[in-house]
Write a protein that binds this DNA or RNA. Structure first.
Length: 248
DNA sequence: AAGTGACACAACCGCCACTGT
DNA sequence: GACAGTGGCGGTTGTGTCACT
């Protein structure tokens, strides 16, 4: 957008646009502008702020990275579980899922799903979108969620304890759901989730714990008898089962 | 120590829905 | 009612970093 460019054609406007990673300077410009004028009107923002970016790009940068309440850093086990739950419920409606994970963006969740969950599902020779995968997740996940809305409203701060923590990119150091490929580890039955010594059967999602943990140990009261074993997902599972040291 | 492969993340693209004119 | 513009969403790709050989 140099002054020397007096000839303005649409193609030239396009070529004048910056792409690729944002610089610190651009970030500051965007932050400053939004601080003064607020969010929204992204195209106008893009024009008036002096940024050589599209409105879309500005919006994306702000929402996914610069916005103050955006959490950076690793997804907590609770968040990971929630994503699994919500995805089993809503599919790839990332923005919808993101609404239930304060501070997390749809982009981040989408990335998480694609890079980890989907990949591991592939290793398991399951299509996460396929019927059997959903089926295996669905019943217990759906059952595990009844309090979901209510969680969202009441316990955000306690449930979502994600911190920005390290800021390092070494995600693998964080406790995560482990999807063990049985082709590599013959100790595991096929189609199982393996989480912290517990094996979760993909077919029924029964808890076949190797640590002799009875379902009732999760200390929940389940009104619905058919979901007794599955409710670990939503209750103490996340809170008590995850132990970084044990996992690593 | 160097090279290679895998992984995670940021950003872009295209499409769709909504709103205002 | 039709059209144009804008914003939002989901899918995809490119790049940088890390781990392993």
């Amino acid at each position: 957008m140099s002054a020397s460019k007096s000839i303005s054609s649409s193609s030239e406007d396009d070529s004048d646009l910056r792409r690729g990673p944002w610089t610190l300077e651009e970030d500051n410009l965007l932050i400053q502008y939004i601080a003064n004028h607020g969010e929204g009107s992204w195209n106008l923002l893009a024009k008036c702020s002096g940024l050589k970016r599209t409105g879309k790009s500005c919006r994306l940068r702000w929402l996914n990275y610069l916005k103050p309440d955006v959490k950076h850093g690793n997804l907590t086990p609770q968040e990971q579980l929630l994503i699994l739950e919500l995805h089993s419920k809503w599919g790839n409606s990332w923005s919808k899922i993101a609404q239930h994970l304060p501070g997390r963006t749809d982009n981040e969740i989408k990335n998480y799903w694609r890079t980890r969950v989907q990949k591991h599902a592939k290793h398991l020779k399951l299509n996460p979108t396929a019927q059997n995968f959903k089926k295996s997740l669905g019943p217990c996940m759906n059952e595990a969620v009844p309090g979901l809305d209510h969680h969202d409203q009441n316990s955000d701060s306690e449930k979502y304890t994600a911190s920005c923590s390290s800021g390092t990119k070494n995600i693998s150091k964080v406790p995560q759901l482990h999807f063990i490929d049985n082709s590599e580890d013959s100790n595991f039955v096929s189609d199982c989730y393996y989480v912290n010594n517990n094996v979760y059967d993909m077919e029924t999602f029964n808890l076949a714990t190797t640590s002799a943990t009875a379902p009732e140990e999760f200390g929940h009261s389940v009104g619905d008898s058919q979901m007794t074993e599955s409710n670990w997902v939503n209750n103490n599972f996340a809170g008590s089962m995850w132990n970084i040291d044990e996992l690593w």
